[in-house]
């Protein structure tokens, strides 16, 4: 027998998937290009980076925090990779170094938040500036070329008929889903997001788990950086500015509570897909990019509103 929580969870997921399907149906009706193989492939490539960031962001938001630094950390990881590749380092090894840099930036976030007792919004806002600034300082603003087969393959090739970046998304969400639903760490994240003081009094190592949350977010920003380097074949230090807001929007559209403690990570993936569909659909229809911003803004508000109506407006 399915428990109520599981049923409620699947309910929120089906709900958001339904919205995505309706949006897809409307768009394919408006444009004959929308459902072509070529465009669906594009959609998968285009959603990948925001989706990976949204996976990390959803964990942070469930823990009751927020990570504004992911765009900058992505850039810092990307230029690390770009610089190393430029120096002739093996691309796979360079990627590992990029992952280490992202994870370390996340650790610094976590350390500042837990030891310095500084609100996540402020700590990660600081990191947003630090990581971006470092990326610019190190590169002196120059964009490295990364025209090596390893990254061209990641960004522009297909595997089993699907674009390679989507496999990064699938693996990320599969791992995060299992982690959040079936591991002690995931359970602790929900508890901390529900009531941090209770979690502490019940013996949960709150500080350690929160640090892990931000490390995970930094790590995933670096995973997104690998895909980004593949997509761009370059590492401009000003890349991915403001992308953190897209990741947060994806999480919110997915219906994960901003107050923390509630939500299913997979909905963030659907939220990211919905946003990518809007951008891609309007691009296809040739509608001005100005309207895309209006529409995405409206969808964010509508999503939260719907959520409130569904749950009878939680305090």
């Amino acid at each position: 027998m399915k428990s109520l929580v599981v049923r409620l969870q699947s309910y929120s997921l089906t709900w958001i998937i339904l919205i995505a399907v309706i949006l897809g149906a409307v768009l394919s009706n408006l444009s004959p290009y929308f459902l072509t193989t070529g465009n669906v492939t594009n959609l998968m490539k285009q959603v990948s980076i925001v989706a990976i960031l949204a996976a990390g962001q959803s964990i942070v938001i469930i823990s009751g925090g927020i990570d504004l630094s992911v765009g900058s950390v992505l850039a810092l990881s990307a230029i690390t990779i770009g610089w190393l590749v430029q120096q002739g380092v093996d691309p796979a090894l360079a990627s590992l170094c990029g992952l280490a840099v992202g994870t370390f930036a996340g650790f610094v976030n976590g350390f500042i938040i837990t030891r310095g007792r500084i609100a996540p919004f402020i700590a990660t806002l600081g990191m947003l500036g630090i990581a971006r600034g470092l990326a610019l300082v190190v590169t002196e603003g120059v964009s490295y070329q990364v025209l090596v087969p390893f990254f061209l393959y990641i960004g522009n090739s297909s595997f089993l008929g699907l674009p390679v970046p989507i496999f990064f998304v699938i693996v990320t969400f599969a791992a995060i889903y299992v982690m959040m639903v079936s591991s002690r760490f995931g359970r602790h994240v929900y508890a901390i997001g529900g009531d941090e003081r209770v979690a502490r009094l019940q013996g949960i190592p709150v500080d350690r788990q929160k640090t892990k949350v931000y490390m995970l977010s930094g790590f995933l920003a670096a995973v997104a950086a690998i895909v980004m380097v593949g997509r761009l074949a370059a590492t401009p230090p000003n890349v991915a500015q403001g992308i953190e807001l897209q990741a947060i929007a994806a999480v919110i559209i997915g219906g994960i509570s901003f107050a923390g403690g509630r939500g299913v990570v997979l909905t963030a993936l659907v939220g990211a897909v919905i946003m990518a569909m809007i951008t891609n659909g309007l691009n296809i229809l040739g509608i001005s990019s100005f309207w895309q911003q209006v529409l995405i803004g409206a969808v964010i508000i509508a999503a939260v509103w719907l959520d409130n109506i569904k749950s009878g407006i939680r305090a």
Binding site: S182, Y190, D195, A199
Partner: peptide, 27 residues
Amino acid sequence: LALCGNLSAPANLFMGREPQRFGFLRK
């Protein structure tokens, strides 16, 4: 400060002492 309102009774009962096997929660 006894319970996390967002969690179920079993989750609260075992909070901080969750039993696991092979790294997975024994739900």
